[in-house]
Amino acid sequence: MAVIDVLGIGKRYPGRHGTLALEGVDLTLGEGAVLGLLGPNGAGKTTLIKILSGLLVPDSGGGTVLGYDLLRQASRIRAEVSLVAPTADVGIDNNLTVRQNLVFWAPVYGLHGAEARQRIDMLLARLDLEKKAGDWPMHISAGQRQRLALARSLLAENTLVFLDEPTNKLDADGVRSVRDMIRDLNMNHGVTVVLTTHVMEEAEELCSEIMFLERGQIRRHAQTDEVLRSLGIVRPIRLVLGLADRAVFTPPEPTALAAAEDVSWDVGAAPNEVSVTVRSSDVLATTPALLAWVFGQGHRLLGMASAPVTLDDAFATLSAAGEAKP
C-alpha cells in the first residue's frame, strides 16, 4: 500500500497577493521510500509538507496519507506522522532543560516510565546531545537546538517522517549525525521519509526518489538515478595509464563501454604513459566497464577523474527549463 497517495493538490494562500503555492501536485510514495523535495526558495516545498502532514488544508485535490483521508481524517494523520520544521527550535521550551523538554513530550506520544527514559537516552546519544542533557536550551548552540527539535519529533515512533531542511544550521559533524540518523530510520526501521533540502549532495546521498518543484508545480518526479540519467548531459572521464607494453596502445572501442560517446587519447608526461578521455552520457555506467578494460589490458591506473552528473546539474537544468517556459 502506498504511504502517500494524493492527486491534484492545489493551494493558494489568502492575502494581498493571493500567493499561488501549489498547483496540481500528484504524489504516490511507497513504504520505505526517501523522497527529496527540491526546488528554489518559494517553490512550495514547505506548503506540500504541511498539507501532507495534515497541518494545512489544500484548496483542491485530495487523497490518502497512511491510509487516512487527507481532508476528512487530518487529525488522524497529524497524530501519526512526525514533522521537523527548519524553525522547529523556536518551539523548544526555554524554561526546561534539554532532557526536560523531551520528558514533557514523551507521555504526549504515549511513552511512559522506563520505556520513555530509554528512548530519550537513545535519542540524546544518537544526536550527540548527551553532554547537554542538563543544560538550558538558551545555552546550547543553534545546531544543538535543531537536533533537540529533531529528537523531540522522533520520540514518537512514527512510520512517516517529514523533515523540512533538517541539516540547515548544522556544521559538518552535526550534518553527519543527522544524516546517519535519517538513514538508520529508513534502512533499519523502515520509516518512510519526505525531506526538503537545498544541499543537492544531501539529496543525492539520502533520497531514493526526487521531486523537483518550481512555482508550485512538479517539474520532475522520478527515482534519483533516473533523474540524473535522463538529463542527457555528457561528461568526460579522464584517465592516466601506465602501459603494460610501452610500444603498443590500443584504445578501447566506445561501443564496448556502456553509454560512452567517444574515446580520445594522447601521449602522457612520461614515455610509457598515455592520457585517455572517454566522454559518457552516464558516468556511473561507463566507469565499471572502463575499469574492467584497464585491468583486463594489464595497464596501471595512475590517475583518474570523472565528474558524474549530480543533482546540482539537475537543479540547474530543471530550473533553467522552468525559466524558459513563460
Partner: peptide, 8 residues
C-alpha cells in the same frame, strides 16, 4: 504546529 502534530 507541534501540539497539533501529536496524538491529542
Amino acid at each position: 504546529d507541534l501540539l497539533l502534530l501529536s496524538p491529542m
